[in-house]
Amino acid sequence: MTTVDTERVPDAAVARRPARVRVLWLLAGVAVLAAAMLASVVLGSRNVAWADVWAALGGAQGTLEEAAVAKRIPRTLLAMLIGAALALSGAVMQGVTRNPLADPGILGVNMGASLAVVCGVAFLGLSSPTAYIWVAMGGAAVSAVFVYTVGSLGRGGATPLKVALAGAATSAAFASLVSAVVLPRNDIAGGFRLWQVGGVGGGSYERIGQVLPFLAAGFAICLLSARGLNSLALGDDVAAGLGERVAVVRATAALGAVVLCGASTAVAGPIAFVGLLVPHACRLLVGVDHRWLLPSTVLAGAALLTFSDVVGRVLARPQEVEVGIVTAIIGAPFFIHIVRRQKVREL
């Protein structure tokens, strides 16, 4: 086999869909995301007319409808960013571990970030949103390493079910610790109860500006890891034989996933199942090539969380159902389906 042939093996091995079909699916994702954005701006506890939307986009806030639109725009942008980040994080985690059950929520990474933020506020007196993000990323990284280490113990190494069970147990333990820290502290309990559920109701341009640099870095790292993830999909030995530095590729991609997960959790709370549901759905549409899969998960994740936020606002008017509850209702049956599949051992 020539050097040129060797370099092309990963791309040839993962080419499962014609490029035209993939492009069409990406364009469809853009259209769905645009529809979700419009629905998020128009629908809610108070529906608004298109005239109010255009007036609010021009800066007008003279009526209740225009003020509602002005408030929904940053909320919509935050929902898109968080949904895209969680979906991309899940897709990269699945690629790094070759585990179809990998998801920031299922593996306990979200709750690790949550526990770190709660402890930082309660014991260290953290008050800066930027500090929340750094602490959350650290907690997410420690949780990810801990769960993978526990899931690797025993015969067979880190099988998908063992890692998922370790993640579920760790997530439950961390959730209990979060409650133990928050409940005695009346000064922080009220705000953290809503944050723990997961939601984007507090979206603002200021909050977006604080988290955007971290998310941008995470997006860049993950998307640039696509070719390396294609090589890892062939197995560590084959990837090493093709010249990939397996440990570096895996660590770099995992870093990007942890940054996305930690930053998202810091601003929106622990939202589960987006990172599980979206990559599996996109894999059916565009195939397993990560150069196409990762961008498609970004679009689909943004659309899913934005639509879920709209459903939560419309479902219980004039109250709201937090988006974390909506995604749990959607994702839990899908998780059960994945667990029951016969080919759940590896991607």
Rank of each mutant, 00 (worst) to 15 (best):
Leu284Met: 15
Val48Ser: 00
Val246Asn: 00
Glu7Gly: 15
Pro333Gly: 10
Glu65Pro: 01
Leu126Tyr: 14
Ala31Arg: 07
Trp292Cys: 04
Val197Gly: 04
Leu27Arg: 08
Val267Met: 07
Ala272Arg: 10
Arg341Leu: 09
Leu115Asn: 08
Ser152Lys: 08
Ser296Ala: 14
Asn110His: 10
Pro100Glu: 08
Ala281Asp: 13
Gly241Ala: 05
Phe307Trp: 05
Ala19Asn: 13
Tyr205Cys: 00
Val197Trp: 03
Pro18Glu: 10
Ala15His: 14
Asn47Ile: 02
Ala113Tyr: 07
Ala253Gln: 00
Arg250Pro: 01
Gly112His: 11
Leu64Gln: 15
Cys282Val: 09
Leu234Val: 05
Ala164Trp: 03
Gly235Tyr: 11
Leu88Val: 02
Ala85Val: 03
Asp237Arg: 11
Val344His: 02
Gly209Tyr: 04
Ala240Tyr: 11
Thr76Pro: 00
Trp50Arg: 01
Ile221Glu: 09
Ala60His: 12
Ala281Val: 14
Gly287Asp: 09
Ala87Cys: 06
Ala302Gly: 05
Ala158His: 07
Leu284Ile: 08
Trp54Gln: 14
Pro10Arg: 02
Ser296Ile: 08
Gly59Met: 01
Ala172Phe: 13
Phe123Arg: 11
Ala68Phe: 00
Ala28Pro: 05
Arg313Thr: 02
Val145Pro: 05
Leu153Tyr: 13
Gly312Val: 02
Arg46Thr: 11
His280Cys: 08
Ile208Cys: 08
Arg22Lys: 10
Val323Asn: 00
Ala158Val: 06
Gly228Lys: 01
Gly90Gln: 05
Leu26Trp: 11
Gly83Ile: 01
Arg340Gln: 12
Pro184Gly: 09
Gly29Asp: 03
Leu224Tyr: 14
Pro279Thr: 09
Ala28Glu: 07
Gly191Ser: 11
Glu322Ile: 02
Phe192Val: 09
Tyr132Ser: 12
Ala140Met: 12
Val21Thr: 15
Val96Glu: 04
Trp195Gln: 06
Ser89Phe: 05
Leu153Pro: 04
Gly154Pro: 06
Ala233Asp: 12
Lys343Asp: 13
Val14Arg: 09
Glu322Asn: 01
Gly167Gln: 08
Leu315Phe: 09
Leu293Ser: 02
Val14Asn: 09
Val14Lys: 10
Ala158Lys: 10
Ala49Tyr: 04
Val197His: 00
Ala316Trp: 03
Ala240His: 10
Ala216Gln: 03
Leu284Ala: 13
Tyr205Gln: 07
Thr149Lys: 11
Ala140Gly: 12
Ala247Val: 12
Phe273Gly: 00
Thr297Trp: 03
Ala51Ser: 15
Asp52Tyr: 04
Pro104Thr: 10
Ala141Thr: 12
His290Tyr: 13
Phe146Asp: 09
Arg250Trp: 02
Arg207Met: 13
Val96Leu: 05
Glu206Val: 11
Phe273Asp: 00
Val92Asp: 08
His280Glu: 12
Lys343Trp: 05
Ala85Arg: 00
